[in-house]
Simulated assay, not measured.
Amino acid sequence: MKPVACIFCDIVAGRAPAAWVARSGVAVALVDPRRAQAGHVLVIPTRHVERFHELDDASAGGMMSLAVRVAAALQVTFDPEGLSLWQSNGAAAGQEVPHVHLHLMPRTRGDGLLQVYPGTVPPPDAGLAERERVAARLRAALGDH
């Protein structure tokens, strides 16, 4: 079976160009070529993994450790008013490249980026009973009854 082409794997292997920010043993950081703000950086695992929940502990930890270092560098370099981190899994969530990647986006007030809730008002609180039902289902899936 022929492996699926992956631009991030090509970047990690040096077969495609990238503006490198940092490298660690399990993750790399590079400037996103389609940036909405200066300093928009992607942190990706060096091993091909499509979705976040499929990461092994070492890759997940390495990605987050590198993201913290890059976030500190973004703060020193750009002094943004804020910083958003986001990661999308699957087309329904907006994932365009089927290789895990964490976005670090410097923010300014009113920049109009990454609105969490559609419209202007967050949805109403689901209530503690409903939140507890969801938590119980997740604990069961984790094996933490």
Rank of each mutant, 00 (worst) to 15 (best):
A73M: 08
S88D: 12
E81G: 15
A72N: 10
N89C: 15
L66T: 00
A60D: 05
S59R: 03
D79C: 13
R69A: 14
Q87R: 13
A67P: 03
A73Q: 11
S84I: 05
G61E: 09
Q75W: 03
F78K: 04
L83P: 01
L74P: 01
A72C: 09
S84W: 03
A72D: 07
T77P: 02
A73S: 13
S65L: 09
L83G: 05
A73I: 04
L66E: 00
R69M: 10
L74I: 12
S59F: 06
G82I: 05
S59T: 13
F78I: 06
N89R: 12
P80R: 02
E81Y: 09
A72K: 13
F78Y: 15
M64F: 10
M64T: 06
A71H: 10
L83N: 04
G82D: 07
P80F: 04
L66D: 01
L83Q: 05
E81P: 09
V68R: 15
F78M: 12
A71K: 10
D79M: 12
Q87K: 11
M64H: 08
A60V: 06
V76W: 04
A67C: 12
Q75G: 11
V70P: 00
M63D: 01
L74D: 01
S88I: 03
G82C: 10
Q87V: 15
M63L: 11
W86N: 05
A72R: 14
S65R: 04
L83Y: 04
S88H: 06
D79V: 14
V70C: 08
S84C: 12
S84R: 03
Q75F: 05
V76N: 04
F78A: 09
M64Y: 06
A72V: 10
Q87L: 15
R69C: 13
